[in-house]
Design a binder for these strands. Structure first.
Length: 657
DNA sequence: TTAGGGTTAG
């Protein structure tokens, strides 16, 4: 009989997990004392195995694992399937590359059983390479080992990882060996998930419909699939029919609305969720924060901030919440507030830096964006492709051609980020906006990848600023092919023709719009009133209860501006109509209605914030400038591109937009 | 063993 009594009392350093930086642990952790009796009897051996399994459960440090493994090896227990399966699970959770140590561990086992196979399959299906899962499954079948239900769960996970629906179908057929997916709820759920992740939503739905038993996870998988495919009606129908909605199901639905540009529904659903008495966690709040950012609702944003703090999710401790809040405050108009959050955060990552850089860019603070970028490069955090979108956008909105070109080169040479079409969009915008239209065109023609609509769109936008109808035609030809249903491109081209007086071409484009059956996307602006209620205005819309007063206030304002020298920019109207008609049309623009409403309903010292779904037109831009001086008000407009802060007759964009 | 997450340009 061998008596084993050891005390491993060393200082242990925790293994770094995916999300935390590894630092020596402050409190010294002591590995529990192991005191086991062992002899050659089978019964004791089994007992020892089960004790070791539970000991492994408590292992959170690589050093502990190494010691335990050495111990197993000495006892010949490294060949025990159950223990190895357990070890493999822990190693997978610690993201240890499977093909290295975990694989060697498995290879030491003689006649591995289904648990050992499954643990390794699961490791590969979570960490890759995914194909290895299937290789192992084949080997397992060849050896005559019967698969378990969770062998299939792991295999389906591998198929979703590899996005291989054909393979998924083949494995689906194999579930006959466990009595079909209908026999096991987990298998059914992972099967749904596999189909929907591979884009075969219909197959996922069929599995769902045929399952004899479903749980909230089955429902949620499908709800998420519908939200991701943009079918919020189908998602909503399922959600309404779900009997016991848990926090995850609510969150899936809220996030779905947020991701499908329906922030109001997201926020109102969040309120219902609170009323239903459900708890909230950081994932829920991230969706809500994103909805709030889209809406630009400052009052609501403040309330969300408080909710985060109340839930113990302080932005300076939680980098995900922090990054989301930086984005929200930037989009709600307060880049200052965003920067306060950024500064107070104790942990930063590429998301928090990128959100802040984009925030600065959005507000035209190019210098701050670029400064922060260089600060970031002093840390260990590597900029990614989105970070470069941020700095390049900052340069283009500020007309900083040299800096933009320098960053574009650095991006590849120093940071190994390969430029994608989106980066070329930024560059085409940067060059084009500054009037270097030919150079922008050369850049597009020299692209190593196929330019997408964004790239040509940037060039077309630049042509509008500089009134170049020749290059515009070229860009538009590509755009009409790439984005035949995007009405914005047609309107831009006809606007450019109108600018240079080519009226017959204007009507040709208008006929093209008509023949393709395209409808103009209605311009919409909204403002948040003191009580947090959001008021919406559409161009020419007189449905607001205060319409009469709004119209009068606007007339009054325009009268004052005309005394001040304002002349309506009639070329902002694309249609060939009389000047009086054009002026009437300009007056109905939604951002002007929103401005008049704000002047009517807010105190004279409070700043005005207007949100708009489309780009602000030149005439409205001038009116906002004038209004800020004549009415002595701070006015900000967030259009679909960026913020314009109007102060004392000037705009933060420097009329460069 | 299974479900929900943050930054993207014209």
């Amino acid at each position: 009989m061998v008596v084993l009594s050891r005390h491993w009392g060393k200082t242990i350093f925790p293994i770094s997990s995916r999300h935390s930086h590894s630092k020596p642990h402050q409190n010294h952790r002591i590995i529990p004392q192991l005191n086991l009796t062992f002899n050659n009897g089978e019964q004791q051996r089994t007992l020892l195995e089960s004790q070791l399994v539970s000991l492994l459960d408590g292992c959170t440090h690589l050093a502990q694992l190494n010691q335990l493994h050495a111990h197993l090896f000495r006892r010949g227990l490294n060949q025990c399937s159950l223990l190895v399966a357990k070890l493999l699970r822990i190693l997978t959770a610690l993201n240890v590359p499977i093909h290295a140590y975990p694989r060697r561990l498995f290879d030491q086992v003689h006649n591995p059983n289904a648990f050992a196979y499954t643990a390794l399959i699961r490791g590969y299906s979570l960490l890759g390479p995914f194909e290895e899962s299937v290789v192992l499954y084949t080997q397992m079948r060849r050896e005559g080992v019967r698969p378990l239900s969770f062998t299939f769960s792991a295999l389906f996970k591998a198929c979703s990882g590899a996005l291989d629906v054909d393979l998924g179908r083949q494995i689906h057929a194999q579930t006959v060996y466990i009595g079909g997916y209908e026999s096991d709820l987990f298998v059914g759920n992972t099967l749904i998930d596999m189909y929907v992740k591979c884009g075969a939503l219909g197959c996922g739905r069929r599995v769902f419909d045929e399952m004899p038993e479903r749980d909230v996870i089955s429902w949620t998988s499908l709800i998420v699939a519908y939200t991701k495919s943009g079918d919020m009606d189908a998602a909503g129908e399922l959600f309404d029919g779900l009997p016991d909605k848990d926090m995850v199901a609510w969150t899936a639905m809220i996030t779905g609305y947020a991701q499908n540009a329906r922030p109001r529904e997201a926020l109102s659903l969040f309120e219902s969720m609170r009323e239903a008495g459900l708890k909230t966690d950081e994932v829920t709040l991230v969706g809500v924060i994103s909805a709030c950012a889209q809406l630009g609702a400052t009052k609501y944003a403040g309330w969300i901030r408080e909710t985060c703090e109340k839930e113990g999710l302080s932005p300076n401790m939680n980098v995900v919440i922090g990054s989301a809040l930086i984005d929200m405050h930037s989009k709600c108009g307060s880049v200052e507030e965003a920067y306060l959050i950024f500064k107070d955060m104790t942990v930063h990552n590429v998301f928090s830096y990128t959100a802040m850089i984009l925030g600065f860019a959005m507000h035209g603070l190019a210098d701050s964006a670029i400064k922060l970028f260089y600060e970031m490069t002093e840390t260990e955090i590597k900029p990614n492709k989105v970070t470069f979108i941020g700095v390049l956008t900052a340069c283009s909105h500020a007309g900083m051609i040299r800096e933009g070109q320098r960053l574009f080169t650095k991006m590849q040479d120093e940071y190994g980020v390969t430029p994608e079409a989106d980066h070329y969009t930024c560059m085409a915008d940067l060059l084009g906006r500054a009037g270097h239209l030919e150079e922008a065109l050369d850049l597009i023609n020299s692209m190593p990848l196929e330019p997408h609509g964004g790239v040509w769109g940037a060039l077309l936008g630049a042509c509008r600023i500089h009134g170049n109808s020749d290059i515009a035609e070229l860009a538009a030809t590509h755009l009409f092919e790439l984005e035949p249903n995007n009405i914005g491109n047609y309107l831009l081209l006809s606007n450019i023709y109108a600018l240079v007086g080519r009226w017959s071409d204007v009507s040709k484009v208008r006929n093209l719009i008509r023949s393709r059956g395209l409808k103009k996307n209605p311009g919409c602006s909204w403002v948040e009133a003191k009580d947090g209620v959001v008021h919406e205005f559409f161009a020419g819309d007189m449905r607001h209860p205060k319409s009469k007063e709004i119209k009068d206030a606007l007339d009054e304002l325009l009268k004052k501006l005309k005394v001040d020298g304002y002349k309506p920019i009639l070329s902002s109207v694309v249609y060939d109509m009389s000047d009086i008609e054009k002026e009437r049309r300009l007056k109905s623009h939604s951002e002007k209605l929103a401005l008049a409403f704000s002047l009517l309903t807010t105190s004279s010292d409070s700043p005005i914030m207007i949100m708009k779904n489309l780009r602000i037109c030149e005439d409205c831009h001038i009116v906002m400038c004038g209004a800020s001086r004549v009415m002595k008000r701070e006015i900000s407009v967030r259009d679909n591109m960026r913020f314009h802060h109007f102060r004392d007759g000037a705009c933060s964009c420097g009329n460069f937009w």
